[in-house]
Amino acid sequence: MTLSLKTPSRNALDARQGVRSRKTFHRRRTIINYLLLAPALLLSIVVVVVPGILTAVASFTDWDGLGFSANFVGTDNFTDIFNDPTFYTALGNNIKWVLLFLTIPVALGLLTASLLLRRKKTRTLYQVIYLMPYVLAPVVNAMVWLSIIYNPHGGVVGYLRDRGMSIEPPLANLDMSIYAVAGVDMWHYWGFLTVIYLGAMRQTPVEQVEAAMVEGANAFQIFRHVYLPNIRATLLLMGVMIVIFSFLAFDYVYLLTQGGPAHSSEVMGTYAYAFAFSSFQFGKAAAVGLIMSFFGLVASFVYTWLSRRDLSK
């Protein structure tokens, strides 16, 4: 009798303790999980978010970047920038950059990727070759083109000129400089798209391709009606990425022309950089940075929205 009374109460006690310990176990696990997440998140916030907010504040000041003293100047920086013809050259060049990159590398990437689809043996070799310029440093690529190709004294351009061809040094020409710079950047970039597109095309269900073949579709029809719809999401996502990075273009322009001659190849990235590190007008540099980011952020929202399906996997 005593035994039977004792047993249920002990079970109840055990159960209660079990619930409590499971609760504390879960709470501890949650804390540990946040601790695991914290370093990556904190580092990103300290390096990206905090200075980003300061940029927004600084764009309304005459900050010189050297100390913490700055005067609030309202929207003067923005008025100055919007009254500066160079800003419109830079903006125009960024838009040209978007249009060039959305057409030429995308077309080359799609063409080569679709040709590589059925070449199982040589596929890897071609991808490695196409990626070579992509994995090299912008400094190296830019110096190679600057000194051995575009150089009128000793480069390929100089060689052709010596032999009577009337080509102008592309980087010194007001109308050509931006295209000459974009050409080098596209040369380094398009192979990346080949790899991306090929990776996406290979996800296409085999049955769809076989069905199209049975119905007698030719290679182009299969590409157009089977592969293209299947990689629509990738095409869109990469398109948005290209728009974002076209507004942020900096490396190749700065290395090849520094925005010259006579600002003809200026992009917003180099325009902002010159304000900060040539004339120490950090306030103005921040304002340009903010304007650039606006274009990038619009595209970035689109990107985040487009990739929401991947994120919720």
Binding site: N33, P51, A276, G289, G296, A299, S300, S307
Partner: peptide, 28 residues
């Protein structure tokens, strides 16, 4: 493993596309 994981994913997606020029000058 944490309830706020979607917010953190969105944060990292945004952070991936943030221009360096947005934070370069104050960081410097």
């Amino acid at each position: 493993k944490v309830r706020s994981w979607p917010v953190i994913m969105v944060y990292f997606t945004m952070a991936m596309t943030v221009p360096i020029q947005l934070f370069l000058f104050p960081l410097y």
